[in-house]
Design a binder for these strands. Structure first.
Lengths: 227, 227
DNA sequence: TAAGTTATCGACTGGAAGTAGAAAACCTCG
DNA sequence: CGAGGTTTTCTACTTCCAGTCGATAACTTA
């Protein structure tokens, strides 16, 4: 038989924290890339699927039950990606709701995606791929559920979208679009805002907390489905 | 070190042929899945990337220069996917323009995606994934270039979209949308249609023949970019 | 030259979404 | 208790996108 590559898995774990999209990184303490920051992950073991494997590795960093969504991102295979070992690497995208603050091991911490430190291997590009995937899916799926708490006001949701999309989002439009798509529903409760007063916000929740694609895209719909 | 999986690559090669979306399949002549149809592909070799590898394997089936587009689709890893070997498999999506008719080896042929024979491994789901990827990208990218000849009439293009999307498409809308997005340009030439007369069709071409994403999606655009 | 066929164009329409301002519902302070 | 400030929510207006349909153009064939 042929020589075989080693298969490793990693994850881009994203969370909207204090108005910024942040990613979970681990600081390496051995070569190669000693001192640089890397995505959490590790080796694929016999008998497990790639998704099992990344969940197992992530469990060492954050409680896996805190992940609201996980999906496969991309598999990279540049023979030169690791200086001494032939590796094929599959990256996943994981999301954590904004109301959780997992306790992290001392070598692991959150970093703003917009302002990354020196990263190991090809992890810089992979993080960009993850952010782009999230941005795209915010537009045509209900993936917002994975960034948001179970219930939230429209303003809070707007802030999450703003952080992830990195541009201003109108609360009016966001509410109208998500309600028309029947992705949100009102809980019937109100939240009395904290220090500075103001009208209490109505609270909403996502109808479903599993990924669903919104219809077709804008154009070239089947005929008879106007608008 | 750990035990390692074998890494294999495969490709969903699609073409719009005689009004139907079709996929290139190869009939197996050994176990497992003796007699079933499988995606073309094979083992990953040392020193090559996954994309290099699938191009090398495809070269045995179709001339690689006939592929107008190729992109990574998904990596599957079910430990039970192969009865005797631990495999991780990366699938690619490849597209062939409708005006080419590659000469194929005797064990390989085109099959309508809407009416597939018995397939080997997890190849049935992978083909579905490929078709869905193509359908989605027809809506928000210029990927039509990969299905179409270098120049074509709007009606011909409409027929390609109809085959790939599996629903009727209006030539009027298609032309208006693709022109507004500046994906198409007129060649200035006319084609005198064959047997039954009619007004000669103006010919068009795609401005670019590499994948480009059309702007943002419909909703939640940055402000100031109206419409 | 009339009839049939195919392609192209333009006008109409409903709906999606950006914008802005008014109104509602709360707070705090005098 | 009421005035003023703050935040949220609603509504009206507007622009743009795309589905529909009918008219027109340019050809072939009888």
């Amino acid at each position: 038989m042929h020589e075989k590559p080693t298969h490793v898995v990693s994850a881009v774990v994203l969370q909207a924290r204090s108005g910024q999209l942040q990613v979970l990184l681990w600081q390496r303490r051995q070569p190669p890339f000693d001192g640089a920051f890397a995505l959490p992950g590790g080796y694929l073991l016999p008998g497990e699927t790639l998704e099992d494997s990344i969940r197992r590795h992530l469990a060492e960093k954050v409680d896996v039950r805190e992940l609201s969504h996980i999906e496969q991102l991309v598999t990279t295979s540049d023979p030169a990606r690791h200086p001494s070992e032939w590796q094929v690497a599959t990256a996943y995208l994981g999301l954590v709701p904004s109301d959780l603050d997992p306790t992290l091991p001392s070598d692991t911490s959150w970093h703003r995606v917009a302002d990354l430190p020196e990263t190991a291997f090809d992890h810089g590009v992979i993080i960009s791929t993850g952010r782009e995937r999230l941005r795209a899916k915010l537009s045509y799926t209900n993936i917002g559920f994975a960034l948001a708490p179970h219930s939230f006001s429209i303003s809070e949701l707007r802030d999450l979208y703003t952080a992830a999309l990195e541009h201003e989002v109108s609360a009016t439009n966001l509410q109208r679009v998500l309600l028309r798509r029947e992705l949100l529903e009102a809980t019937g409760e109100l939240r009395h805002s904290g220090p500075s007063g103001g009208r209490p916000a109505a609270l909403y929740r996502f109808r479903s907390r599993t990924l669903s694609i919104t219809d077709q895209f804008a154009v070239l719909r089947p005929p008879g489905q106007h608008g």
